[in-house]
Design a protein around this nucleic acid. Structure first.
Length: 936
RNA sequence: GCCGGGAUGGCGGAAUGGUAGACGCGAUGGUCUCAAAAACCAUUGUCCGCAAGGGCGUGCGGGUUCGAGUCCCGCUCCCGGCACCA
């Protein structure tokens, strides 16, 4: 049995085909122009298909079996599309800046580049062994100087442009300079898409750097490392992503993404439409700043009985009065002798609270300022409170409180004894936050009574605007992207500061700005909860790098370099473009190459959940697979950069990724002993009792099972290397693809992998003599039943491939294989389509069989089988007979049987007669030829 | 609280409103073998029955329908996102 399909033979076959693919450049994708262009013209390239994985961080820990799931899936899709005749672009680069390498450098002194590159070598080896059909000429790493150069170039585009609100697009800063007639940095710099601001930021002492909002969890900790994060006022670089909030939401209707993912982005951007309403402040008569409140419910303005300012609001100080009014409710004073003391004490207490404490303690607190504001709709005086349930960072930092129709205001009003009028009709107790007819809302010639909530909103906004009391506005939860980090291992900013301290962009000719060698990679280390520590970038210590003399056009001058670095989201925010033209040194990608691979395609289906804007295709990568955890971070950032590049005319596509798919995760069981310590999962023995209950032991001692991630510390890691060794890459691939639907997480089960191997062995045995290795395929015509089985399989598998139902596609291939095994015949007309359909999943063994079947060319571009319709119709089918909806008989009938014939045959069945039991048949429903349903 | 997704054998999972449980794992029995492993074959939702056959069965309670895992209404639980965001 020297030619049995064992792990050893699989390993030989796999190595052989990987070498041949590499030697022949089998997976090279042809570009329209440039160094990767072929001999033929663009028109001859044929239809393209651009598929991508979210690119990996080359971890030192190596891969576990969960990591390749997405890579196998994209490879299956890519190989399938290639067999459908597409010019397939599929490559894999590395997101190589990042914290682990830097931490490793800090602890070992080894340069992060050396460590990262070593990791990449190991990862490339592990992935090559999987047999992925990548165009390796297009691989790159974000740390490559050539890549860094273009990342910095894009930063310069951001720095050198501004957002024109009228046109809703980015424009070159030079046009703003012209428009404003000044190039004074004080007038200009605040408009740039990349700007420095001195504002509250997320300072994480445990990481020694500031973080973007997206990198901070709801619990107020760093997403990476779970360290505490503090709000600190600091000067940092920001990118004006908020300018794109509307387009980032609206264009979700133009991409084919999972609805859940779109919803996550919508939630994060948090657009709410409403109005800013001006409340008069008689105490500040003549002042230029009336009180602006933001509300999403201007329809309830008549129900506003007080207003609340955030403790940090700038009008708090001017508003606070000297004494409490006569007969004041003691609950309003906070126990203080006068408003100024009460407010000062309250603010001090609020400031001492962390965000987390604010969240945990939702008890409504606050104090009265002593001042009143005037409700513009009816001229009524309402008290002004300071309370920390109003946040300074959202809307205007001030609200009108409508306790009748807002749960938070209701709580506060109840606690402080404020009136709670009803202005929206409806069932049940207040607060009533739902829909209804407006009531009690008339004053002068303004009346909202009887209108629905939506109509009232429109009416009142029009009234506010006409009377100069407010405007309809939209606010967003999204904040600008904090873009600087106090780390070493990231892209340096292409920015220097002149003697006046103004930021000056370096010219493109000076890119890339390389990282200098440093004696020590660590930022200053801090206790994780030392909120008062100050960030100190490692680059700041390299004086000879920081202090430079440059000629930037007006003679040599002294400059000081920016010492922060970019976050590691920078490289992944544009890398999709680089795959299309990876070696271009004139542009991020040649426009012609970008347009070919990513440009709008009017023939493309708009996809699931397509909205009204979907009529116009937004372009983008045809298919992108990755984990949901990147939905808010990476996928928001990359869309933003792409839109900026589109506005500035550098790309033809408006969205980076047309179709997105979130693959599930492979999870694993872990086991803990009596002390709670993890024991090696592969040494645990399972016991099933007679009553079906399952227990587990390790070394004879009972252990507890838990379910979750695979990880070294959980002692449940299974590696691809182990699978290659025990089964080969093809078996591993087939197992991963057959475990379940791609978007669902599921537990790894090593003992089940053998099922995939048995399947491949059966296919092998069908085509090859296990003694000699010779083909045993016959050129005889297959029998009709086999022919039908083959074409039914082709038909079903084609549909499954299209819909990414790889698990059911493989099930159908197994069924066909089992059918052929049973008949004992191996006709070429059955085996060849089977091998071709198997190829995307198990490419090496498929190539090997294809070659042993006598084909000299690789099958990577062989045409995918197409079902012959004439073999899809059967002569006879099984007809089900139901009585009262229950199946009582099955008939083998002609596929062309008429309703009458079927009814007659059904009634002739003794079992059907028994079920009818002499009753009258009142109705007969026939769905010829598969169903007869009798109603008695 | 709001939004999105889910719940089917011992396990992973299949099922355009029309045969629930495809396919795989495991389990049981068998073939081969001195024996075992591998491989192959058969059985495998559950209960009653020698069998033929029948009852029950897709988280729970209703409904629509000749017929519901699938559609509708009302719940429970689990996973994910957002959350004092006005």
């Amino acid at each position: 049995m020297t030619q049995r399909y064992t792990a050893e033979l699989a390993a030989k076959i796999e190595a052989r085909w990987q070498d041949r693919w590499e030697a022949e450049g089998t997976f090279h994708a042809v570009n329209p122009v440039g160094d990767l262009a072929g001999d033929a013209g663009t028109d001859d390239l044929g239809p393209k298909y651009f598929i991508m994985d979210m690119f990996p961080y080359p971890s030192g820990a190596g891969l576990h079996v969960g990591h390749p799931l997405g890579y196998i899936a994209t490879d299956v899709v890519g190989r399938h599309q290639r067999m459908l005749g597409k010019n397939v672009l599929h490559a894999l680069g590395y997101d190589a800046f990042g914290l682990p390498a830097e931490l490793h450098a800090i602890s070992t002194g080894e340069h992060p580049r050396a460590n990262t590159e070593a990791n990449m070598v190991n990862m490339r080896r592990q992935l090559r062994r999987l047999g992925l059909g990548h165009d390796d000429r297009r691989s790159f790493a974000t740390i490559d100087p050539d890549f860094v150069r273009w990342t910095q170039w894009i930063f310069l585009q951001l720095f050198n442009s501004w957002f024109d609100v009228e046109q809703q697009k980015a424009r070159p800063i030079s046009e703003l300079i012209e428009q404003l007639g000044t190039d004074d940095p004080a007038a200009i710099d605040g408009h740039r898409l990349a700007y420095v601001s001195d504002s509250p930021v997320n300072w994480c002492p445990g990481l020694g750097t500031v973080l973007a909002n997206e990198e901070v969890t709801a619990e107020g900790r760093s997403e990476r490392g779970n360290f505490p994060v503090f709000k600190r006022q600091m000067k940092q670089w920001n990118l004006r992503i908020t300018a794109y909030a509307d387009r980032l939401i609206d264009d979700l209707d133009r991409v084919d993404w999972p609805e859940s993912g779109k919803q996550m982005q919508r939630n994060w951007i948090g657009r709410s439409r409403g109005a800013e309403v001006e409340f008069g402040l008689p105490a500040l008569e003549g002042s230029e700043t009336p009180l602006q409140v933001f509300t999403t419910r201007p329809d309830t303005l008549f129900g506003a009985t007080y207003v609340v300012l955030a403790p940090e609001h700038e009008l708090v100080d001017p508003l606070v009065t000297d004494t409490w009014p006569e007969g004041i409710d003691p609950r309003w004073t906070g126990g203080a002798a006068d408003p100024a003391t009460a407010v000062a004490e309250y603010r001090a207490r609020a400031a001492a609270k962390t965000d987390l404490e604010r969240q945990e303690n939702r008890e409504k607190t606050g104090v009265f300022t002593g001042a009143f504001a005037i409700n513009p709709v009816n001229g009524e005086q309402v008290p002004v409170f300071v309370a920390d349930y109003v946040l300074v960072g959202y809307g205007t930092g001030a609200i009108m409180a409508v306790p009748g129709h807002d749960a938070r205001d209701f709580e506060f009003a109840t606690q402080f004894g404020l009136p709670i009028p009803r202005v929206i009709d409806g069932e049940g107790d207040l607060p009533h936050t739902g829909d209804g007819a407006v009531i009690n809302s008339t004053h002068g010639d303004l009346s909202l009574d009887g209108l629905t909530v939506d109509d009232a909103k429109a009416r009142i906004i029009a009234w506010l605007e006409q009377n100069g009391h407010g405007t309809g506005t939209t606010t967003y939860r999204l904040r600008d992207w904090l873009f600087s980090r106090q780390r070493y291992w990231g892209e340096p900013f292409p920015i220097v500061y002149d003697e006046a301290g103004n930021a000056v962009a370096l010219p493109e000719s000076m890119l890339p700005v390389d990282l200098p060698e440093v004696p020590d990679y660590s930022p200053r280390t801090f206790e994780p909860d030392d909120a008062n520590s100050e960030p100190e970038p490692p680059l700041g210590r390299v004086r000879e790098w920081v202090e430079v003399e440059l000629d930037l056009g007006d003679g040599p001058k002294r400059y000081r370099r920016e010492t922060n670095t970019m976050p590691n989201w920078a490289g992944s925010s544009w890398y999709e473009l680089r795959y299309t033209d990876p070696h271009n040194d004139q542009a991020i990608a040649d426009p012609e190459n970008e347009r070919y691979w990513m440009g709008p395609d009017e023939n493309r289906s708009p996809g699931r959940g397509a909205g009204p804007g979907a009529a116009k295709d937004a372009g983008g990568v045809d298919f992108y697979i990755g984990g949901v955890e990147h939905m808010v971070l990476h996928l928001l950032y990359v869309r933003f950069w792409h839109k900026v590049l589109f506005d500035l005319g550098h790309v033809s596509s408006e969205e980076p990724f047309h179709r997105l798919f979130n693959q599930g995760y492979i999870q694993a069981y872990a086991f803990t002993d009596a002390r709670g310590a993890y024991v090696p999962a592969d040494e645990v023995v399972e016991h099933v009792a007679d009553d079906g209950t399952t227990t587990w032991t390790h070394d004879g001692n009972p252990v507890q099972r838990e379910y979750g991630k695979m990880g070294k510390s959980l002692k449940n890691v299974v590696t691809p290397d182990e699978m290659y060794e025990a089964y080969g890459a093809d078996t591993f691939r087939v197992y991963e693809m057959s475990m379940g639907p791609l978007d669902v997480s599921r537990p790894w089960e090593t003992r089940a992998v053998v099922g995939a191997q048995r399947f491949l062995q059966r296919v092998w045995r069908l085509a090859v003599d296990e003694e000699t290795g010779e083909s045993i395929v016959s050129d005889d015509e297959p029998d009709i039943e086999t022919l039908r089985a083959v074409h039914r399989t082709i038909d079903g598998v084609a549909a499954d491939m299209e819909a990414l139902r790889f698990n059911t596609a493989i099930a159908k291939l197994i069924e066909l294989t089992n059918h052929l095994t049973k008949t004992g015949a191996a006709p070429r007309a059955a085996i060849e389509p089977l091998v071709l359909m198997l190829a995307p999943f198990a490419p090496h063994v498929a190539e090997e069989l294809w070659s042993r079947l006598g084909h000299a060319e690789v099958l990577a571009r062989a045409p995918y089988p197409v079902a012959d319709p004439q073999h899809l119709v059967a002569d006879t089918v099984t007809c089900v007979v139901q009585v009262q909806g229950k199946v009582r008989a099955k008939l083998e009938v002609s596929a062309t049987a008429t309703d009458e014939e079927l009814t007659a045959q059904a009634l002739a069945e003794p079992n059907v007669q028994r079920a009818i039991d002499g009753r009258e048949v009142r109705k007969v429903i026939v769905r010829a030829p598969k169903l007869v349903s009798l109603v008695v």
